[in-house]
Simulated scan of single mutants.
Amino acid sequence: MLELQNVSKTFNPGTVNEKLALDHVNLHLEPGDFATIVGSNGAGKSTLFNAIAGEFIADAGHITLDGQDITFLPDYRRSKQVGRMFQDPLRGTAPHMTIEENLALAYLRASHRTSAFSRISRADRQLFAEKLSALGLGLEDRMKQPVGLLSGGQRQALTLLMATLVTPKLLLLDEHTAALDPATADKVLELTKKIVAENHITCLMITHNMRDALTLGNRTLMMDHGRIVLDIAGEERAHTTVDGLLQRFAENVGHALDNDRILLSTETQ
């Protein structure tokens, strides 16, 4: 499904601010894989997502999605195949447009109906209402309201729906619950698991919560200095504890994980 071969990226090369962000990254995801990613700040997690989404062209390597080489494909063309959510609830929606208008934009873009004559039909609106109803937030009764009136959790749930309204080949979740209060984060996470499972979506999710990293999906990846340093799945993952994961990380890279948010999350579990 997704294949990264020796993908590298250096920002500001040849300057005092030179930064090797991705260092010959190799990754293979099978259809339906749900992999969580953890690592310290600057480990390359979001940069990896940016490379896959096409926000920049990698300096070296190849990226293949569902058999298609997308290494040099522009980001706007990749967005028809790749859904993405960010940590900030404000990034995924247009606040001055209504819920229905936001859904319409996402639907028209992802379904390739982008001609000047594309229109949303009554059947499309019914589909929107049904999908909103499935979220269990009452948004199906507020379709004509501006998105800016929604809470952060409601906006993230709406963004999740927009990203999956037309099932993407790949879904990228960049700490999409981190800015929410715990109760709301849990609800959005449950919606995420439900939508991903029902639609068999291949998914990569960045998280700072070590428990989630080991229990969500079927694979756990750890990154450090632009490299994937640990990739566990199956029985090995099922028998790995949070402390064991931290220990293996330290053994593989030669130093302990130094992300305060991650370490705090292990203490509160």
Score class of each variant (00 low, 15 high):
F86T: 08
L139R: 02
D141A: 15
T114C: 05
G136E: 00
G42R: 05
F56I: 04
G138V: 02
R91M: 14
L132I: 14
R91L: 14
R122S: 15
M85D: 06
A134N: 12
R113W: 05
G83N: 09
A51C: 07
L132P: 07
V38D: 08
T47Q: 11
S115Y: 04
R91P: 08
S46R: 03
A106V: 14
V82C: 05
Y107W: 14
A43H: 10
S151L: 01
Q68I: 12
L103V: 14
L48G: 03
P89D: 06
A51G: 08
A104T: 11
L160D: 04
T93Q: 08
Y76W: 09
P146H: 13
G67V: 03
F86V: 04
R91F: 11
K45C: 03
R113Q: 03
T98A: 10
G44D: 05
T98Q: 09
L139G: 05
L160M: 09
V147S: 07
S133T: 11
K45Q: 08
A51T: 09
A106I: 06
V82A: 02
P146Q: 10
I63Y: 08
F86I: 06
V38I: 14
E140S: 02
V82N: 01
R155K: 09
L150E: 02
R91D: 10
V147I: 08
G152H: 07
I63K: 09
G54M: 06
S111C: 06
L158T: 08
D141W: 05
A123L: 13
G61F: 01
H62E: 13
F56E: 05
F117Y: 01
R84S: 12
A116G: 03
F72T: 13
A58L: 03
E55L: 14
E130S: 15
Q68Y: 09
L137S: 04
A116I: 10
R109E: 12
R142S: 04
A94T: 14
L149Y: 13
G136Q: 00
V147T: 10
N41F: 02
G153I: 00
Y76C: 07
G61W: 02
F86N: 05
S111E: 11
L150V: 07
L65F: 02
F56R: 12
G148T: 07
T93D: 11
D59T: 10
D59H: 09
Q87D: 01
P74F: 06
N102T: 08
N102E: 11
G148C: 04
K80L: 09
G42S: 04
Q145L: 10
L105P: 09
R122L: 15
Q145G: 00
Q145K: 08
I52T: 00
L137Y: 00
F49S: 01
G39T: 00
S40Q: 12
R155V: 00
R109Q: 14
R78G: 08
S115V: 02
A106G: 12
P146S: 03
T114R: 06
Y107D: 13
E55V: 10
I99N: 07
L105E: 14
N41Q: 01
L127H: 12
Q154G: 02
R109H: 11
G153Q: 01
K80C: 01
V38F: 05
R84K: 08
A53K: 13
A53M: 13
L127M: 14
Y76E: 13
V38L: 04
E101V: 13
